[in-house]
Write a protein that binds this DNA or RNA. Sequence first.
DNA 1: TGACAAAAGTTAGACATCTAACTATAATGT
DNA 2: ACATTATAGTTAGATGTCTAACTTTTGTCA
Lengths: 151, 151
Amino acid sequence: MKHDAVMLMGRIHDLTQKWLRGELVAAGLSGVVPSHGDVLALLFMKGEATMHELAAFAHRTRPTTTVLVDKLEEVGLVRRMQSEDDARSVVVVLTAEGEALRGSFAAISKKLASRVYSPLSKDEGEMLEKLLNKVLSNLEAAKNAESAKSD
Amino acid sequence: MKHDAVMLMGRIHDLTQKWLRGELVAAGLSGVVPSHGDVLALLFMKGEATMHELAAFAHRTRPTTTVLVDKLEEVGLVRRMQSEDDARSVVVVLTAEGEALRGSFAAISKKLASRVYSPLSKDEGEMLEKLLNKVLSNLEAAKNAESAKSD
DNA sequence: TGACAAAAGTTAGACATCTAACTATAATGT
DNA sequence: ACATTATAGTTAGATGTCTAACTTTTGTCA
């Protein structure tokens, strides 16, 4: 055992992010980066979402989400609206142009999965997901335990 | 199969990097980040290295490595020297202060591995490394195949 | 009911990283 | 031998992300 899983995951993460950027450019979406994809992914699922929900889903901070949505609004894929329930909230929705990209995004996402899973058998793919979930749950539990200590 | 391995690895990567930053601060190394750790790791192994070697080992670009070494020199952990063989090359070496941190870095590195591997059995740990290596090799092969096409 | 705390979002400033362009030196080929 | 090409490293400028601080609105509770 080389105990290098963290390094391996870092490398895989780097390569997949880089590849994704290339795909987005190839799809005519210069200036759109993988994090924007996470924002759009939630909108494709839910139709609309608050900044807060988008930030949580994309695992980014709210300031970062502000910038991400600024960009998506600038290129015309989403629109900000005032919430009717809560005057503090902003609701983000897809424009027609944004909705039109649903298919492209699904295709890129499928291509990414196939790229990563192709060297693995079905069993191996499932095993990998199981092991990663174990590791992640454990890290999140440890993190929560530590932040709870500072009460 | 959820095909979410990429997302899981991204999350694990984020959490481990964040934790590492905290450990470095706790070790009195404010301003030193995980990438600096990669630079130091090679110096702990080889004693000295050129900028080019450090960049390759840390998987960063040479401009980034310039900045990393600037910082390490500023906090007194390494020193730049002119190479005697090649006037273009810079050789980076550890200072006494840098050498003194060997133990702390080994401890942090061990703690990180234990954090990640603790929820896994020995067999599972080995399996995880095997699967990640498969995925990474495949991605690197695909990348090389694509860049070769543009000849 | 009115003060104070919590939450949603933005702005400002910092930082790690990247690509492109530049300087200086070494290697190569005719 | 000299011109061209390649390599080592740095500088300059851009970008994605973060934390801290701020504004506005909502919730709480004495």
